[in-house]
Nucleic acid binder design. Structure first.
Lengths: 189, 189
DNA sequence: AAATAGTATTGACATAAGTCAACGTTTTTA
DNA sequence: TAAAAACGTTGACTTATGTCAATACTATTT
């Protein structure tokens, strides 16, 4: 039970089995079909998820109705609508499964209880934030002043699973280019 | 001495004067002229800065020699080449004063010592990361699929000081548009 | 398994934004 | 404070990428 989470925690330096059990017990397994909305636009995020299996994305819909993908997460990673989770304001974004998923869910209350009471867990949270920050920064950098071809090449180099696992349409909306342009670029690689 | 830092710490919930003094004593004041490089491209960031006066930016130079600005920070804020500071890898970016500055500098060693020993300071670090993450996210969002006019409008709304205080050229390189385009847009607002 | 809806590809065309250059203005440096 | 360098603005032109539409392909759903 909670195999992947257990090895994640071990890899982050939690070696005490009792603490691992304590942490794992805060999570409940949810099996969820593809395209389920986990956080709605106006909702306030009240849970953190660990992805046991499947894939999740975060996206918005702009005024013209076009989707814009912000983030994709796969097995072995945590995911949440973090700005809303942190500030408890409406998400102003959607979080959605994009494959059949097994998710380990922890309530915000329990999450912060763990942060308060388990120092190693607080460290993991800090690491998640640091990593999230670095990835976001790299993405801003990676995309700044790049043309469509360079963005695709950047993605191949830095997040190769995206092009293999995510639909063209979603990848295009992540890169801020049209599906047509992505298709044309891919045919020339 | 260290007025602005003191009130920053108070605003973040540190009320014990002894702790404020302890924290403040880890910082040394540096007066630095404009356009000084604080972190070089290949350097490893070993300090965190609190801006007492002035402005700092983080930027890179791409393969064609064009600058790309990532971040601007002003009085009352912390700034560092965070990815390098965290991972202790070469920065792959520059940190530079863009005005005459008074900076309060703390070494990485002392910074993490404070994080370890002063719980309220650890909380401040978490807040900095959370905020940095949220801002980076918002920026990705804010710019995703926006045309040049919309990016400028977004900046006016979300970071109005940029257009007032930073040169056209740097703002343009922050927005990922050419200075000509920014100039044309400004003349039509 | 058939029907339906969604997705990918490609061509023709439109357009936003880049480049380059010239000029005037502001800022820096000596 | 004069000279030099950097910056901002604007016009003419070029180009990358978007839009729209037709067709083919792939997944979902019943």
């Amino acid at each position: 039970m909670h195999h992947l989470l257990t090895s994640f925690l071990r890899s982050k330096g939690i070696h005490d089995d009792k603490i691992i059990e304590l942490v794992c017990n805060c999570f409940t397994l949810k099996e969820i079909k593809s395209k389920s909305i986990l956080v709605d636009y106006t909702a306030i995020a009240d849970a953190y998820y660990f992805i046991n299996k499947g894939a999740v994305r975060i996206f918005t819909i702009n005024s013209e109705g076009a989707e814009s993908s912000r983030y994709f997460a796969f097995e072995g990673n945590f995911v949440a609508a973090l700005p809303s989770f942190i500030d408890q304001k409406p998400a102003e974004e959607y979080m959605q499964t994009i494959e059949k998923c097994e998710l380990l869910k922890i309530s915000r209350t329990n999450f912060y209880k763990l942060v308060e009471t388990v120092p190693t867990f607080a460290k993991i949270y800090t690491e998640i934030l640091e990593l999230g920050f670095i990835i976001a920064q790299k993405r801003i950098y990676g995309f700044q002043g790049f043309d469509a071809l360079e963005k695709v090449q950047w993605t191949i180099k830095n997040q190769p699973q995206l092009l293999l696992r995510i639909s063209n349409k979603m990848v295009a909306s992540y890169l801020g280019i049209s599906p047509s342009t992505l298709s044309r670029i891919k045919s020339k690689l």
